[in-house]
Amino acid sequence: MSTLHEAFARARREGRAALIGYLPSGFPSQAEGIALATAMVEAGVDIVEVGLPYSDPLMDGPVIQAAVHQALTGGSSLANVLATVEAVAATGAPTLVMSYWNPIERVGVGSFAARLARAGGVGVITPDLPPDEADAWLEATTSAGLDRVFLVAPSSTDARIGAVAGATTGFVYAASTMGVTGARAAVGAGARELVARVRAVTDLPVAVGLGVSTGEQAAQVAGYADGVIVGSAFIQRILDAPDHAAALVAVRALAGELAAGVRAGSPAVTR
């Protein structure tokens, strides 16, 4: 198992951005989800985000909503999420969980962090937990040795960016645009400026998510960010595939295209 730090360092040595892929656990089924995430890694994804399916995903657009709904209908549970993490981490790719806050608080922050660490997870992304409300979470993640990833947005003030970066470990998640998850024709124009503002206050890697769906967009983002995060585009390919075999092919193809994209991003990331 490699850590987030090592994954970003390796990408940097290779003069490229890291590729981060998202899939919700239990989609389209527990076993198929694990196979798809494994295929992502084999085809070039460096870091995997396993989504914890939640009943009220208010940061997510229709594509991820549909996948999460399917996972919940299929009987998703925390045990299943942890099993997915364990299986994906076994590929060697650092594996995080992306979870809305209530499922973490409900299980107990200490218990959640400890169980995730035991399953081989390296960190957690919490899209609806601002650092202001995160005191217990900072303690729990530190104690479990997990990275904790908070988000910044184009609307964040410099003071907020400083506070978020100060609470974050692993990498800072920069939302490219104001909105929910989902593919867009163009990555938000404010993303580059946002990344620059984050870099001004921290040495942590900065990864850009929301709206990246093609190799071309990945190359563009890789020109200024340390990581490129793709979720809805993978899920759309899976939803469009007639069967699991076709989904595997489609996911590999997209991961390959994006992996080429983060390597085409020019100039190489310099610090």
Partner: peptide, 20 residues
Amino acid sequence: AAGHFGAFGGRFVPEALVAA
């Protein structure tokens, strides 16, 4: 000042909404 009623309330939102 941060919207807490004892142990309740607060602000659990995406960062994008904090400015608003």
